[in-house]
Structures are given as structure tokens and as C-alpha cells.
Design a protein around this nucleic acid. Structure first.
Length: 315
DNA sequence: AAGTCTCGCAACCGCAAGAGC
DNA sequence: GGCTCTTGCGGTTGCGAGACT
């Protein structure tokens, strides 16, 4: 005896028409939202009750707010998400007029990416630097690579995505600067012809993280600048309400050199600078201190004989 | 101008909890 | 207590519009 289907097979699926919306809205206005299974029948709709409920709660309800999320709303989402995680209904309950679907979609399409771009893990809400340091200092060497990959998968996705977009630019840059022949068999290198790298994602399945090469020590040392397209995220004014008005990224990772490109292009350094236009203490501490990210952002070290495609951004 | 890609949103799916009998 | 039905929730998918090549 299998699961009882929530509705018959002959129901309509897909986009709702304005006529259907009208039927549903007027029926609910008259009779309320009792028993969703009966509502489509009584309202003359060829729809599943579940579909009607979804349409009503996510779109037709008169108290819904449509349109862009405000900065305050985004801050609320990020703050609450750092506390309750993917409890979208809980988060949406704090945002009048927004549904859990709205919040979820906004998180998945905008905020998650934005945080990743800021160097903040959207799952733990910690700066990637902290996660890397924790991983590197607390785990045995053979475990580090796998756990680091799991923990930082999101960030790597983001980086690979950006690198993929930028690949032609940086290849040109490299060919003009170092003249080193590319080794396409390297697990760390993306080339224009590497099909496995075309699709953003974690490392190609047949090219796994080299646990021998990616020791804890290798997480430190190699520096790179992110492509300038990320500068806006690193150095922009949005802090998402992290403590003290500074995002963890701004506090710990956004050093002057990281943002050089953006500043040269006329973008402001945002929260990093204090009122006197000088660098904040937080940034200095991180730069001078024992952080893994002593100067610029660090992804991972590569074997010294491997040309590092990421280094294209350093020059 | 046409084809391809990317993004954002709406909708669907399946599971779990709650309510009622 | 157990069964059925309803509702709520979170993850995932599909599609259309706009951007890009």
C-alpha cells in the first residue's frame, strides 16, 4: 500500500493564469482557506489543493509584499540565518509580507553568493579564514583535505565560477607575463580547454584534491588577489549587520592590498577605513598577526612546480 | 540577428508533524 | 494507540526573460 497521492492525475500543473488566480482569490474571499483539498473542486479549478495553497500563500495573499528586498530585510535574513539556519518559515515570520519561499529564493540566489564573495561561509557565517585555520590546526593531515573541501565547497564554487568567467582574461595575462607552458593535467589548473572546469562546481570528479599536497601547512603562505569583480563585495559598504558594523570579512580579511584594484578604480574602501581615512585597527591586527591570511586572501598553496592559475591575479 | 548562457522566480515534490476520529 | 487526512516546511526543478557571445 503506497502513499496516497495528494490529488488526482488529471490536475493542471505549471504557471497559474489570471483567471485561475481570480477564481481562487474570490473563492477564498468568500469561504476562507478551510480544507485545501476541497477548495479547487468548489472553486472550479483543475488544480491540486496543495498547488492552490501554495499559490495563495506565496502569491495571492493580500498582505504580501512584492518586489525587491530592502537592505534592512537582507540584514534581518542574514542575522536570523546565522542563528536558526535554513528555517525559512521562522525567518519569514520576522519579515512582514514576505513568505518562506521568497526568503529562501532570495537567500539562494543573492545572499548566499554575496556572503561567499565577502569571504564568509554562508553556512556557518564565519569568515573562511577562520574555518581554514580551524581545520588546519585541529585536524590530522590526511583529514584536512577532505574536510576542507567539504567545509569550503561553497567558497570554491564561487571562486571557480568567477575564475571560469575570467579564464580568458587571466590566460591572456599569463601568456603575456610568464610564458610558462600550462600543464593541463594539474588538478589545480583551469584552462580554456578543460571541459571539466567549464561548469562551475567543486573540483572535477576525476581530479581530486591532492591530500599529499594540501597539508595544513599548505593552507598558509600562497597569496592571491581576487579578481576585481569581487572587490565590490570585499570592500563595499554592505556589512550585513555583523557585530560592530563590520562583517567578519572586513574585520579580518579585507586588507589594503586586497582592495587595491577596487580603490584604484575609484571605489571606496567602505568600512575598513576609519574616520580619518586610515586603516582600521582590525585590519592591521590581522595583517600583522599570526593569521593565515597575513597579507592578502589565501586559498591554498600549490606545489611549487605547478603554475598557479590563481596567481594571475597577484600581478 | 541568432544562438547560448545565466539568473531569478514560481511551482513542484516528498517528508514530517499535527489534528481529528 | 493507531490510522487517516491536512497542513507546513525545506529542497529542488523548470521556465521565462534578459544578458552575453
Amino acid at each position: 500500500m503506497g502513499r496516497i497521492p495528494c490529488c488526482e492525475d488529471n490536475v493542471k500543473r505549471g504557471q497559474w493564469t489570471p483567471e485561475e488566480d481570480n477564481k481562487l482569490s474570490s473563492y477564498i474571499a468568500q469561504h476562507g482557506t478551510r480544507n485545501w483539498r476541497l477548495i479547487p473542486k468548489n472553486a472550479g479549478l483543475q488544480r491540486c489543493g496543495k498547488s492552490c495553497r501554495l499559490r495563495w500563500t506565496n502569491y495571492l495573499r493580500p498582505d504580501l509584499k512584492h518586489g525587491q528586498f530592502s537592505g534592512a530585510e537582507e540584514q534581518t535574513i542574514v542575522k536570523l540565518h546565522s542563528v536558526v539556519g535554513n528555517r525559512w518559515s521562522l525567518i519569514a515570520a520576522q519579515l512582514p509580507g514576505r513568505t518562506d519561499n521568497d526568503v529562501k529564493n532570495h537567500w539562494n540566489t543573492k545572499l548566499k553568493r554575496k556572503l561567499s564573495g565577502m569571504g564568509i561561509d554562508p553556512i556557518t557565517h564565519k569568515p573562511f579564514s577562520h574555518l581554514m585555520a580551524e581545520i588546519a590546526t585541529t585536524l590530522a593531515t590526511p583529514q584536512v583535505a577532505h574536510l576542507a573541501e567539504a567545509a569550503l565547497g561553497c567558497f570554491k564554487d564561487e571562486m571557480l565560477h568567477l575564475l571560469t568567467k575570467k579564464r580568458i582574461d587571466f590566460q591572456l595575462l599569463q601568456s603575456n607575463t610568464d610564458g610558462v607552458q600550462r600543464n593541463t593535467s594539474s588538478p589545480y589548473i583551469a584552462t580554456q580547454h578543460d571541459e571539466t572546469f567549464e561548469k562551475p562546481g567543486i573540483f572535477p570528479q576525476n581530479k581530486t584534491w591532492d591530500s599529499a599536497g594540501a597539508t595544513s601547512a599548505n593552507f598558509a603562505g600562497t597569496c592571491c588577489n581576487f579578481p576585481s569583480s569581487l572587490d565590490a563585495f570585499f570592500c563595499g559598504p554592505s556589512s550585513f549587520g555583523y557585530e560592530g558594523g563590520l562583517s567578519p570579512w572586513n574585520q579580518s580579511m579585507c586588507t589594503g592590498s586586497t582592495c587595491t584594484a577596487g580603490e584604484q578604480q575609484g571605489r571606496s574602501h567602505g568600512k575598513l577605513d576609519d574616520e580619518n581615512g586610515e586603516e582600521s585597527q582590525g585590519g592591521k591586527e590581522m595583517r600583522d598577526g599570526p593569521s593565515l591570511f597575513n597579507t592578502d586572501c589565501v586559498l591554498w598553496d600549490l606545489p611549487s612546480d605547478e603554475p598557479n592559475s590563481l596567481r594571475a591575479f597577484t600581478s
